Amino acid sequence: MKIGNVELQNKVFLSPMAGVTDLPFRLICKEHNCGMLYTEMINAKALCYDDENTKKMLKIEDEEHPVAVQIFGSDPQYMGRAAEIMNQYPNEILDINMGCPAPKVVKNGDGSALMKNPKLAEEVLKAVVKNSTKPVTLKIRKGWDDDNVNAVEIAKIAEASGISALAIHGRTREQYYSGKADWDIIAKIKESINIPVIGNGDVFTVEDAKNMIDKTNCDAIMIGRGAQGNPWIFERINHYMQTGEVLPEPGCEEKISTAIKHLGLAVEEHGEYIAVREMRKHIAWYLKGLRNSARIRDEVNKIESYEEVVAKLNNYKADALTLG
């Protein structure tokens, strides 16, 4: 798998997710053979204004590569300048967000709202491609709503504008994450353009990944919610693609040990106060489906110290192993 001049070892990627795909989570996913990591989305305007919090989100470790940084905005000038700034950073790929459904993003005409204005979208794409020394990719949705499905039109504009690969989430903005992702739109885009197409939406299992590739003929898969509390999904899909064998799901011990490791990385990166709070959602995802997990989750949500969270999880793991 190749995007522009960037060689990728496999074709199972981590989707950019605000508040989720920070450095600690990316490192965990990389350990489990994720083919390409995406950062949280970066506000192009904030980057241009040298915002400190934005720069912190751009920290990339040597062991992460290859990494795609995703920027968002709808002003071609700011987006072009952001691309220029990103030339100094060590990421291999620069990605443009045209899929975020969040109200605070779309109210400014950014994210998936940009799909409603193909002419402006084209100006943004061309400005970023012109100013970037790296391959530029694009992430879109099916369209704004069922009456405005224009993913194929945007995909063709993207290819003509010099975009190196396109990721498509098979839902409209109006759907957010509800209902079912439409994989037919991924197949239509794959037939309509010649650059690599990355399918996204409703890949939660090894079988889902196989079905998406079979149904859409996409070149790669991007996993978002399916990786939350489940970084093993990357190695399990890759193993299946190579051997046809489905590896067993991780057990309770491995899930809790990984949650503790993830928490440690988060404390290193963000400090104890922020990390313990930010990790509550991740811990809930890791524990999902395990015995008595709701009780442990509620208890963890009230704890404010790293040591106490670790002790709570280790006790839970010991109890689970005793009970078998």
Rank of each mutant, 00 (worst) to 15 (best):
P103G: 11
K59D: 05
P66L: 10
V106D: 13
V106G: 02
Q70P: 00
K107E: 10
P118H: 13
A121Q: 02
P76A: 04
G109F: 11
R141I: 05
G111S: 14
N97H: 02
N131H: 13
C100V: 03
D110I: 01
V106P: 04
M115K: 00
L138K: 00
K130Y: 09
K59Q: 11
K126L: 06
V124G: 08
S161A: 15
V149H: 08
Q88G: 02
V69P: 00
G111F: 14
P103S: 11
K134C: 05
K104G: 11
D146K: 02
I60E: 08
E84D: 08
V69R: 01
E122A: 15
A160Q: 14
P118C: 11
V128M: 06
C100D: 12
P135D: 10
E122K: 12
G109I: 06
N97D: 00
P103M: 08
K139D: 04
L125I: 09
W144Q: 06
Q70K: 01
K104W: 13
A82W: 08
M115W: 04
N87E: 05
N108M: 05
A68W: 01
D62N: 10
E63Q: 14
M115Y: 09
A68L: 09
N150V: 07
I140Q: 00
A113L: 03
K134D: 02
K134P: 00
E63M: 13
M79G: 09
R81K: 15
N148S: 13
M115C: 02
D145L: 15
Y89M: 05
M86S: 12
N148Q: 11
I85T: 08
K59A: 10
A102N: 07
M115Q: 04
S112E: 09
N91G: 10
G99P: 02
E84F: 15
A155G: 01
V67H: 03
Q70Y: 10
E64F: 06
G109D: 03
K130P: 00
R141V: 04
N91T: 05
V128S: 13
G109R: 04
Q70H: 00
L125V: 01
P101I: 07
K134N: 04
Q88K: 14
E123F: 13
E122P: 04
K130M: 07
A68Y: 03
K139Y: 03
E63R: 15
E123P: 02
S112L: 10
E63T: 04
V106S: 11
M79W: 04
V149P: 05
I71F: 01
I140Y: 05
V128N: 07
V106W: 13
E123K: 15
V152K: 02
T133C: 06
K59H: 14
K126H: 03
T137I: 11
E159C: 12
M115V: 03
I60Y: 10
R81E: 14
N117D: 14
L138P: 01
E84T: 07
D147A: 13
L138A: 00
N108S: 09
